[in-house]
Amino acid sequence: MSWILVGAADALEAEDVMRFDHGGRTFAIYRSPSDAYFATDGLCTHEQVHLADGLVMDHIIECPKHNGRFDYRTGEAKGAPVCVNLKTYPVKLEAGRIMIELDD
C-alpha cells in the first residue's frame, strides 16, 4: 500500500467529483458538501461509464448514463440499475493536497 498524490485539494469544488488516473487504473475523487474527501473506482459497476461525468448530490454520486446511484463514502449501491458496490479507497489531505492509498 502506498499514498499517491492526486492534486491540489482546492482544484475540486465542494459537492463535486473529478477523474484521477494512475497506474493504468481510473478513479473518481469526491469532495463532499462538508469538505471531506473520498475516492472510489472510476467506472460505474453497471455499464463501465466514468462516474466523474456524473452528478454529486450530498453524499450520492449518480452515474451520468443510467442514473445508477452510489454512496461515495462507502461505495454502497443504492438501488437499480446498480447492485454491485463500488470499491472505495482511503483519502487524506496533506499540506493542501489530496492523497489516496492504493495497493502497490
Partner: peptide
C-alpha cells in the same frame, strides 16, 4: 456521456 450530469 458527460452531458448526463446536466440531464440529471
Amino acid at each position: 456521456a458527460g452531458l448526463g450530469r446536466d440531464l440529471r
